[in-house]
C-alpha cells in the first residue's frame, strides 16, 4: 500500500525557502499573502497491504531512518493524494 508523509519546518525555524517565495509573491502583487512555508511531501509505496503495519514501518523510517529531523521538522502521515 501507499502512504504519504508531509514534512514541514517547525514553527520556530526560519523557513528561508518559504520566505523567498513569500517575498517573490508579494512583489508580484499578491498583497493578500501573509506567510508562506514550504515543506516536503513524500510518497512511500510499501509491500504490505495492512494499514497499521504500513504506518509502523513509516514511523520507523521517520525516526530511525532519518526521514525527518525532529530538531527542525514536524511530520504528518497521510493517505496519498
Amino acid at each position: 500500500m501507499k502512504l504519504a508523509v508531509k514534512i514541514m519546518p517547525r514553527d520556530v525555524i526560519l523557513d528561508t525557502q518559504g520566505r523567498a517565495v513569500e517575498v517573490s509573491m508579494k512583489s508580484n502583487g499578491f498583497v493578500d499573502l501573509t506567510e508562506c512555508r514550504i515543506g516536503k511531501y513524500v510518497e512511500l509505496t510499501l509491500r504490505t497491504a495492512d494499514a497499521d503495519q504500513a504506518k509502523i514501518i513509516v514511523e520507523k523510517m521517520l525516526k530511525e531512518g532519518g526521514l525527518y529531523n525532529p530538531l527542525i521538522e514536524k511530520y504528518e502521515i497521510q493517505a496519498c493524494l
Partner: peptide, 14 residues
C-alpha cells in the same frame, strides 16, 4: 550532526 554524533543541525544561510 545528522548522525547524532554531534548535537544540532546546519540550516540554510540567512
Amino acid at each position: 550532526c545528522e548522525a547524532g554524533i554531534l548535537p544540532g543541525v546546519l540550516l540554510k544561510n540567512d
